[in-house]
Protein backbone atom coordinates (compact mmCIF):
# COMPACT_ATOMS: atom_id res chain seq x y z
CA UNK A 1 0.00 0.00 0.00
CA UNK A 2 1.32 3.38 -0.97
CA UNK A 3 1.57 5.90 1.75
CA UNK A 4 2.42 9.38 0.62
CA UNK A 5 1.45 12.81 1.84
CA UNK A 6 1.64 15.81 -0.43
CA UNK A 7 0.90 19.36 0.57
CA UNK A 8 -0.06 21.85 -2.09
CA UNK A 9 -2.06 25.00 -1.25
CA UNK A 10 -5.57 24.56 -2.75
CA UNK A 11 -5.69 28.17 -3.93
CA UNK A 12 -3.13 30.81 -4.81
CA UNK A 13 -2.91 34.19 -6.50
CA UNK A 14 -1.26 34.31 -9.93
CA UNK A 15 2.46 34.82 -9.55
CA UNK A 16 2.46 33.84 -5.89
CA UNK A 17 5.30 31.66 -4.60
CA UNK A 18 3.78 28.59 -2.95
CA UNK A 19 5.38 25.95 -0.73
CA UNK A 20 5.11 22.35 -1.87
CA UNK A 21 5.88 19.39 0.39
CA UNK A 22 5.94 15.70 -0.37
CA UNK A 23 6.65 12.76 1.89
CA UNK A 24 6.46 9.04 1.16
CA UNK A 25 6.77 5.94 3.32
CA UNK A 26 9.78 4.00 2.08
CA UNK A 27 12.45 1.99 3.95
CA UNK A 28 15.35 3.55 1.94
CA UNK A 29 17.45 0.50 2.76
CA UNK A 30 21.05 1.49 2.03
CA UNK A 31 22.41 -1.91 1.00
CA UNK A 32 25.27 -1.44 3.45
CA UNK A 33 23.60 -3.16 6.42
CA UNK A 34 23.63 -6.77 7.51
CA UNK A 35 20.63 -8.65 8.82
CA UNK A 36 20.58 -10.67 12.05
CA UNK A 37 21.98 -13.71 10.25
CA UNK A 38 24.91 -11.79 8.80
CA UNK A 39 23.38 -11.77 5.35
CA UNK A 40 23.47 -8.56 3.37
CA UNK A 41 20.19 -6.63 3.27
CA UNK A 42 19.78 -5.71 -0.39
CA UNK A 43 19.63 -2.07 -1.35
CA UNK A 44 16.11 -0.73 -1.79
CA UNK A 45 15.91 3.00 -2.22
CA UNK A 46 13.92 5.56 -4.14
CA UNK A 47 16.23 6.91 -6.81
CA UNK A 48 14.16 9.66 -8.36
CA UNK A 49 11.34 12.04 -7.58
CA UNK A 50 9.73 14.02 -10.37
CA UNK A 51 7.15 16.73 -9.87
CA UNK A 52 5.05 18.03 -12.76
CA UNK A 53 2.80 21.07 -12.76
CA UNK A 54 0.17 21.19 -15.47
CA UNK A 55 2.02 18.36 -17.23
CA UNK A 56 5.41 20.08 -17.37
CA UNK A 57 8.30 18.95 -15.19
CA UNK A 58 9.08 21.66 -12.63
CA UNK A 59 11.20 19.82 -10.09
CA UNK A 60 13.15 16.60 -9.90
CA UNK A 61 15.54 15.07 -7.44
CA UNK A 62 17.89 12.10 -7.35
CA UNK A 63 18.06 10.20 -4.09
CA UNK A 64 21.05 8.23 -2.80
CA UNK A 65 21.56 5.77 0.09
CA UNK A 66 22.32 8.60 2.53
CA UNK A 67 18.74 9.87 2.27
CA UNK A 68 16.73 8.85 5.34
CA UNK A 69 13.78 6.48 5.40
CA UNK A 70 10.42 8.09 4.56
CA UNK A 71 12.03 10.91 2.55
CA UNK A 72 10.54 14.39 2.84
CA UNK A 73 11.09 17.02 0.14
CA UNK A 74 10.01 20.66 0.24
CA UNK A 75 10.40 23.25 -2.50
CA UNK A 76 8.56 26.23 -3.92
CA UNK A 77 6.74 26.95 -7.14
CA UNK A 78 5.39 30.06 -8.81
CA UNK A 79 1.64 29.64 -9.20
CA UNK A 80 1.06 30.32 -12.90
CA UNK A 81 -2.09 28.46 -13.92
CA UNK A 82 -4.74 26.30 -12.27
CA UNK A 83 -3.77 22.69 -12.68
CA UNK A 84 -2.51 19.46 -11.20
CA UNK A 85 0.72 19.18 -9.26
CA UNK A 86 1.73 15.54 -9.64
CA UNK A 87 4.53 13.59 -7.98
CA UNK A 88 6.15 10.39 -9.12
CA UNK A 89 8.68 8.45 -7.04
CA UNK A 90 10.67 5.68 -8.71
CA UNK A 91 12.65 3.14 -6.71
CA UNK A 92 15.54 0.96 -7.79
CA UNK A 93 13.22 -1.99 -8.33
CA UNK A 94 11.54 0.08 -11.02
CA UNK A 95 8.33 0.54 -9.04
CA UNK A 96 6.66 3.91 -9.23
CA UNK A 97 4.31 5.57 -6.78
CA UNK A 98 2.27 8.60 -7.64
CA UNK A 99 0.32 11.28 -5.83
CA UNK A 100 -1.23 14.52 -6.98
CA UNK A 101 -3.06 17.60 -5.79
CA UNK A 102 -5.00 20.37 -7.52
CA UNK A 103 -4.18 24.05 -7.25
CA UNK A 104 -6.63 26.79 -8.25
CA UNK A 105 -4.91 29.99 -9.35
CA UNK A 106 -6.94 33.20 -9.46
Amino acid sequence: MTRSLVSVPPTARRGEIVDIRAMIAHPMETGYRMGPNGAEIPRHIITRLVCTYGGAEVFSAEFFPAVSANPFVAFSLIAAESGTVAFEWTDDEGQTETASAEIVVS
Binding site: R3, L5, S7, R21, M23, A25, N70, A74
Partner: peptide, 10 residues
Protein backbone atom coordinates in the same frame (compact mmCIF):
# COMPACT_ATOMS: atom_id res chain seq x y z
CA UNK B 1 2.50 17.62 6.36
CA UNK B 2 6.02 17.17 7.74
CA UNK B 3 5.36 14.75 10.61
CA UNK B 4 6.38 11.32 9.31
CA UNK B 5 4.08 9.69 11.89
CA UNK B 6 1.17 10.89 9.75
CA UNK B 7 2.15 8.28 7.16
CA UNK B 8 1.11 5.62 9.67
CA UNK B 9 -2.05 7.52 10.57
CA UNK B 10 -2.86 7.46 6.86
Amino acid sequence: TGNPGMLWVL
